Computed example of a mutant assay.
Amino acid sequence: MLPLAYILMVNKQIRMERRYDTSPKLFIIYCSLAGFISSWTISGLLVIVDLVSETPPGTFFSVIGIPLGFNDPTTAQYVGFVLHLLTGITAGNIYGQIALFWSKIAPLNPIHGSIMGMIVGVALWVVLFFPLATYGIQPRLDSLILSAPNQEIQGISSHFYQLYFVVIGGSFIFHLIYGAMAGYISGRTTELGIFTKTKTIGKVGAKGVSP
């Protein structure tokens, strides 16, 4: 019969082998990746805005790039798309960094992650998109109706001139979807332990526990 002290020592060793050491850098990377995947997916849903405005697919991204001074609609479209992805990645990155210091919002599982992600999505809409669309993009589009550098930009501005409330309302829903997806992906990776590693301290030998 094994001594009680040895059994307790082995049990302690097993518990120590199952202890996980979270890697902050990998955690932030995976949250950023979740933001990238979610923003890329939302890009497809933004075609709905183009359908409502009766413009070719991708025109909504031109609306983001045109106010920045890009007079070629195609170039403005690519610029808007890249900025859209960068915003999604940055939002995921910031969420991951905050979650490291505030564990209550950390994506511990897919359900909790989705809920926290939607909160992040709403915060992103309130802090960034709503002010930018209201005080930056929309006034610029209004001015381009009368002073557009070319006919293509004037046509885009005319299509989106009366769609402010549609864009604002639709963007709110899209930000909720983005947040839910990013939170779900982050929570799932947390649940699977993708960005954690097992810390093993010592090994159980035939004659005892080695340090």
Rank of each mutant, 00 (worst) to 15 (best):
I29K: 02
I89C: 08
L124C: 11
G92E: 03
Y6F: 12
T41L: 13
E17C: 12
I119V: 15
R15Q: 14
L26F: 09
L132S: 02
M1A: 14
I66C: 06
G193V: 09
H159V: 01
Y78L: 08
T41H: 06
H159R: 10
P131A: 09
F27P: 03
V47Y: 06
M16Y: 12
S23F: 08
I14Q: 14
F172K: 08
S39M: 06
H175Q: 10
T41Q: 07
L8R: 15
L132H: 00
I194P: 06
G136K: 00
T74C: 04
A99C: 11
L176C: 12
A91K: 04
G69W: 05
I201A: 13
V52M: 13
H84P: 00
F81Q: 01
S171W: 05
G205D: 13
A99S: 15
Q138S: 11
V52W: 13
I7W: 10
S210Y: 15
S186V: 10
I115D: 05
I201E: 14
V126E: 06
P3G: 09
A76E: 04
G187L: 03
A99Y: 10
L51A: 13
Y20A: 11
E54P: 00
Q162K: 12
Y30R: 04
I119Y: 10
A148M: 02
I28M: 14
N93Q: 12
K199S: 08
T75M: 00
G205A: 14
T134I: 02
I185D: 01
T134H: 08
D72P: 00
Y30Q: 05
G170T: 10
L83C: 07
L46S: 08
H159F: 04
G117K: 02
G35W: 09
R140P: 01
F36L: 12
D142C: 02
M9E: 15
V120K: 01
Q151Y: 07
Y178C: 01
L68F: 06
L100F: 11
S147Y: 05
S43W: 03
A91C: 13
V209P: 07
Q162I: 07
F160Y: 15
V166E: 14
M1N: 11
I94R: 04
S147M: 01
H159E: 09
G69Q: 03
G170Q: 08
K12G: 15
V79E: 00
P56H: 06
D21W: 12
G121W: 03
G183E: 09
I42W: 04
L132R: 04
D50T: 01
F61M: 04
M181H: 01
V209E: 13
Y161T: 04
S53A: 15
